[in-house]
Computed example of a mutant assay.
Amino acid sequence: MSAPDSTEQPLLVVIDPVARRVDGESVRIARDVLCGGAVAKICFPEGPQDVERALARRGRRRPVVIGDDRALLRVVHLLHQRRDLPEVPVSLVPVGALPAVSLARALGVPLGTVAASRAVLDGAERRLDALVDDAGGVVLGGLWIPGPGGLNRTPEATAAAEPNGSPETGIADVADVTEVTASEGGVGDHQSWWSPAARTARSALTLLTGPAARHQLPSCTRLRVEADGVLLVDLDEPVARVALCAVDGQAEVTVHTHSAELPSVARATRVSISGPSFHYRADNVLTGPVRTRTWSVREGAWRLVLPRG
């Protein structure tokens, strides 16, 4: 459901340092379009602390992120920590190539600089669900847990998993999302960015995992998965993959095992996963190892400005 427009509010434009380094020309174009259409304060943060200070002093300005998925996630997490996330509309102008902006694409944000900037000025807010974990994390698109053979960790992915890793580390080791088509539940190039196929987090999870991740299941791992206290799989049954996303106000968990031809799917408000140390990818960011984690769905947890229609 659409939220009231906020296009008349002044803007706080947060320009990620990685975006300035990767594609300075796109950053310049986005800044010119935004400043030409609204009263905007430009912020050039050098690190997360600068972003946090800018958000704390934003006043009535609504945040606009110029950068990749990581820059968006950083702002969302900071707003969540400040308990401002449900009431503050967020906008994004993606800068970077796939897969660094695959979450933006999955959420329905145009990847073109001018189109995304115009959407910031002329778009409409939409309330979207999210998953919040017991460690304070927020998942916008979806998460999945591969077995030990499914991580293929690169140095970049390892840095992304470290709690004190560089905020400028890009997303690595992600399936090619450009191959996803509308028939697979994704968004084809011929479709509008806010087409029906792109409206659910399930579609976002499909885009983020990509065809290779869906069709080449990794090695087995042992996990205990519970949905609202109901046991879906226990440690004695090897798991190939677990996927989780927020759909229509509920958490949808999909469990692939090698003993069953089809995955089991359940809906719940709270999903707990535990077992030997495991890693998981949330919005394409590698996290872990952890021994247990619980996610709860938050309906209408955040507001994203997207193109109209």
Rank of each mutant, 00 (worst) to 15 (best):
E237G: 05
P263Y: 05
A19S: 10
R70V: 15
A161M: 05
A116Y: 01
L12N: 05
L121N: 07
T154M: 02
V290A: 04
G141T: 02
A251L: 05
I15M: 11
R270V: 08
P146I: 02
P196Q: 06
R303M: 12
R28S: 09
R267Q: 13
A197S: 04
L286S: 03
V14R: 02
Q9L: 11
E87G: 13
P148V: 10
R153N: 01
W194L: 04
I145R: 05
P163W: 07
G300W: 09
V114S: 03
A100N: 15
G108S: 10
D248E: 15
G188V: 11
S219I: 02
N164T: 13
S166M: 09
C35P: 01
A40K: 03
S166V: 10
G67L: 01
D5A: 15
S296N: 01
R241H: 09
H256E: 14
D84Y: 04
A251W: 00
S259T: 12
A197M: 01
G170T: 11
I15D: 00
R31E: 11
C245F: 11
P263A: 06
G309M: 04
R293M: 00
G67T: 13
N284W: 00
S219H: 12
G165I: 04
W144H: 15
W194C: 06
L286P: 09
C245A: 15
V253I: 15
R214W: 14
V271W: 08
D32F: 03
N164I: 06
C220A: 12
L217M: 03
A71T: 07
E226K: 07
A56H: 07
A38L: 00
V233S: 10
A56D: 12
R53F: 00
L205T: 14
E237M: 13
A282Y: 06
I66W: 05
V75I: 15
L73F: 06
P263I: 07
W295T: 10
F278H: 08
H256L: 12
D23M: 12
G24W: 05
G59V: 00
L131N: 00
P89N: 03
S192E: 04
L128E: 00
A159G: 06
V271R: 08
R62W: 04
A56I: 02
A104T: 08
G300K: 10
P86Y: 07
G188C: 07
D234Q: 12
V33E: 07
G186F: 12
H190S: 04
W295I: 12
A251N: 00
R126M: 12
L111Q: 05
A54E: 05
V18A: 08
D133G: 09
S259L: 14
V265A: 04
W295Q: 00
R60S: 13
C43S: 13
A266M: 09
T287R: 14
L11R: 11
T292M: 08
S183V: 14
E87I: 03
L73G: 11
T169F: 02
P155N: 04
R28E: 13
N164P: 01
L286I: 06
L12R: 08
G47C: 09
R118E: 13
P10H: 06
